[in-house]
Design a protein around this nucleic acid. Structure first.
Length: 578
DNA sequence: GCCGTTTTCGGCCCGACTGTTTTCAGTCG
């Protein structure tokens, strides 16, 4: 079993126990264990086999035993028993905003509701309002959120989609007839929401397509076949998003990949350009209109070259001016992962992170970074054990001691200070002045009106000690909408005060998004690409932030954490403009 | 359920908000 599957099982056990009314600390222990496993950078199976699992914080004797059971049998008995007692679809109810375990249980026991569909029927039939503690507003809220849920039922946020694609890709690669499998479509373009998971599979002979498709559709995460042709198939998947597979032979591979990568409007522009230049581009081939011969191409670059274009990377293929730029040799030298020299937003055990400062630093150094900033939470965020000024200063001392051991790596002191509901910051200016990096973020008052929340964030930007606004819109992809902030005004204010906006790389956030990052670039506002990592592994999510930046046409000079340390410090101290 | 270890049991979890109430339970970050 993969780490993610074990973590997922533990999360589900926690949910089921919650539903049963088990005490808070026990269900929290399961969630903490799941989180610990998500944060591991080695397979659980290896750590279990070597006996190292007991050294992982939040994994105790009991849960390790259950993990062992899962590793050997694929499931643990507690999980199985819980699923026998409770229909797992009731957990979907708890995922609805406003519904927790208590209310889900009441709906189940008093109205017999076991699924979202049944809940919608009950709510529309005005039965929910009759339950204790629930009224008309709750009923309307339920109907509203089920509506939102149905809208996004056939899509998946990028992070989850990439995991699904990785799992399916791994499976495809081990099929004997598969020479190579490549994920195309929304995922290859790093679109933040994925509407279709697309594979192009290379085989030696088209006769093998049938067998490949046959094996593919038996994968357990795939559902019913939506349609099927000799060389392709489209199915549903466990997560609702459709999955498509196209089998091609070598001579069709590159045009097919280009076609399947899209976007549709980008490819349409290419087709038009091809036509004007004497070619016909379709889903398999680039054919000469004069002699009907297919062009022999051995890369996507070759196709673009034949069309008189610079190569356009998938992230830019959105019909957003990239084709005319490519025609005029004006494509930017896009930011690359390798340009990133450090990560300026992360949490440690001092607040709600899982790793120590030293562990995070060592990992960052192994990644080739020159620096990180440790930015733990401020006091008002009680649930995250936000640091008091005293603890924060103690942390700064600890960091300065740790810094003694390297001459090629540096830990910057920092803080993620809450922008409080009244617009004040959660630390005194004297405290903020002591930190190398101050990120100001909103973690409360999400429902304030547009004016109030915009004014709040503007006030933070105007504070001389604040360097960066963290996750500026506060959205959680597929889960929580942004707060009502006027992003244009935030960008304008950041430009005026020479402040930096964050791309939060967590695939749950991708905040700012590509659209606003582009706006920020056009307004001369610099960006910091950070992970907000709460454990070692999530530092690797920086690639998601880089993809947002690339989709926004960012070059290294637009991103402060591409700077060498001395220049970065100058910028943070306000001694030079970015 | 995990943790600590001068502890093998007792602590861990806090405050704001919402919608329902008429004093508060449930949810959320």
């Amino acid at each position: 079993m993969r780490n993610a599957e074990i973590a997922w099982a533990l999360y589900q056990i926690a949910d089921l126990l919650d539903f049963k009314g088990e005490e808070f600390f026990k269900t929290r222990a399961y969630r903490r264990a799941a989180r610990a496993i998500i944060g591991l950078d080695r397979p659980v199976a290896d750590l279990y086999a070597s006996g190292e699992l007991k050294n992982v914080p939040n994994l105790g004797k009991n849960i390790i035993a259950k993990i062992g059971e899962m590793l050997s049998t694929g499931e643990c008995s507690l999980h199985r028993e819980l699923k026998q007692q409770i229909p797992v679809t009731v957990l979907d109810l708890m995922a609805l905003p406003g519904l927790g375990p208590k209310r889900a249980k009441m709906l189940y026991e008093q109205l017999g509701v076991t699924s979202i569909d049944e809940l919608e029927q009950a709510a529309r039939g005005r039965k929910v309002r009759g339950l204790p503690g629930m009224g008309v507003k709750t009923e309307i809220n339920i109907i509203h959120h089920i509506g939102l849920l149905k809208k996004k039922a056939h899509s998946l946020p990028l992070g989850a989609a990439r995991e699904l694609a990785a799992q399916l890709g791994e499976y495809l690669e081990q099929l004997a007839a598969v020479r190579k499998s490549t994920v195309a479509g929304d995922i290859r373009r790093w679109a933040e929401v994925v509407y279709s998971v697309d594979f192009i599979v290379l085989a030696d002979h088209m006769e093998e397509a049938g067998d490949i498709i046959e094996s593919f559709i038996t994968h357990p995460v795939l559902g019913e076949v939506l349609w099927r042709e000799p060389d392709r198939v489209r199915t549903t998947s466990r997560w609702g998003v459709p999955v498509e597979l196209v089998v091609v032979t070598r001579e069709r591979y590159w045009p097919a990949l280009l076609w399947a990568t899209g976007s549709r409007s980008h490819v349409r522009r290419l087709q038009l350009r091809a036509w004007k230049r004497g070619w016909r581009l379709d889903a398999h081939r680039l054919v000469s209109r004069s002699d009907g011969q297919a062009a022999r191409v051995d890369s996507e670059e070759a196709i673009y070259r034949l069309l008189g274009l610079q190569y356009v990377v998938p992230e830019l293929r959105e019909n957003n001016g990239e084709i005319s730029a490519a025609a005029g040799d004006r494509l930017p030298r896009l930011l690359d992962l390798e340009d990133i020299r450090g990560d300026l937003h992360m949490h440690t055990k001092w607040s709600d992170g899982l790793g120590s400062i030293e562990e995070m630093a060592r990992r960052a150094r192994e990644k080739g970074y020159s620096y990180i900033a440790v930015t733990d939470h401020s006091p008002s965020l009680k649930i995250a054990r936000g640091l008091s000024p005293e603890r924060l200063l103690a942390q700064f001392e600890r960091i300065s001691a740790l810094n003694e051991q390297w001459d090629d790596f540096h830990i910057l002191t920092g803080v993620e200070v809450d922008i409080l509901a009244d617009g004040k910051l959660d630390h005194m200016d004297e405290v903020l002045a002591r930190a190398n990096v101050v990120i100001a973020s909103v973690h409360s008052g999400f429902k304030q009106d547009r004016d109030t929340i915009t004014r709040r964030i503007k006030a933070a930007i105007e504070n001389e000690h604040v360097n960066i606004i963290g996750h500026p819109t506060g959205r959680l992809l597929g889960y929580r909408e942004s707060y009502a902030v006027d992003v244009e005004e935030i960008i304008e204010t950041a430009a005026r005060y020479n402040k930096v906006l964050e791309i939060n790389s967590s695939p749950d956030r991708l905040d700012l998004n590509d659209y606003y990052v582009q706006l920020a670039r056009e307004s001369g506002v610099c960006i910091a690409i950070n992970t907000d990592a709460h454990d070692l592994r999530r530092m690797d999510e920086i690639i998601y932030g880089v993809s947002v930046a690339r989709r926004a046409w960012l070059e290294p000079r637009h991103v402060i954490n591409t700077l060498p340390l001395p220049e970065l410090l100058q910028v943070l101290r306000g001694e030079s403009r970015v």
